[in-house]
Amino acid sequence: MFFHQILLLVIHKFRGERSSTAPFYLLKGKKSGQTIQDVTYFNLHSFFSLYSKLSMEEYKDEISTLLANEYIKSNESTILLTEKGLHQIKSMRKPMYNGWIYRGNEHIFFSRLELVVQTLSYFQASENKFVPNQKDQTVHQFVRTYLIENDFKKPGFVVSLKQQIMDLIGSSSFEDIHRELFVYRLSGYDKSGLTWEQLARYYNKSVLDVKLLFIECLHIALHTINAEKHPDLYILTKDIEVVTPLTESAMKTNLLFEKGYSIEEIAQMRSLKKNTIEDHVIEIVSANRHFPIYPFISNDQLNRVLQISHEFQTKKLKVIRDHVPDLSFFQIRIALTKGET
């Protein structure tokens, strides 16, 4: 159900202007010009890259269920909400995601915490040799340094960390299911965590729903952790937030722009298509509102596009272009992106 509601909300935000696969690429966090630009156009930051493991099969199943229940309908090549669907999202609580800035890194935070808790739990049982559940060597390295630097054997460390976890997930931003998922995905001495399937059965929900609730829980946690109240948890959040939300390729393009090269020159230098570089521009514009767009579009042209978009309540490039045939699709995209930042 939870995934259904998220999907309905996303489809609602696309305002019937995108195909049925657009929500899929958004949730998977596809780093293409189209998806990144849509994030800005339709203000979908919180849902971007929410669940990169989503499979097309899984997704199509959910979409057909929504269609069959008449929460959504398709119209030519796009999908949109029905009255029933609209009613459905009005009755739901607002999901508290922030996919744009965490992008799956929330799991790294949890892996670190998981290994810290497992280590402490085993040490308490006087077992200082154990097989870590967490196999990622970079997480091992991080936690090793963390434990040594924080002198984890000093009296009071464990109690204080536990208090910080209690205080964090005890906060009113969490629901009980969040708190339980958070704690029961941890493992310790003689206390192994529960699998997704076991948790899903307990709550009588689907595995996907439980995973999405867990991700929501981590996003709330990362948002709530603060350096004064949760100092030992705060250190575990190091480098979890994406600083420059640009793809690596767009970053390279950005550097070349800073050196003063044009789109054509950059395309040639990087042996990429002009279209790709234009996608990068859109990405850069949506990430950095100080990026100068005057080489691509004039202020006057920009305002015209925004006015038409507003007047006809649309972000469809074709519709807009019919009214400004002198502008390219690329220019219209820039204008629409700029209009939202």
Binding site: V117, L120, K162, M166, I169, E180, V183, L186
Partner: peptide, 15 residues
Amino acid sequence: KQQLNWVYRLNELLH
């Protein structure tokens, strides 16, 4: 049927 209790469980993991 096991009843999940996060405070209890956290106390089992760390004490």
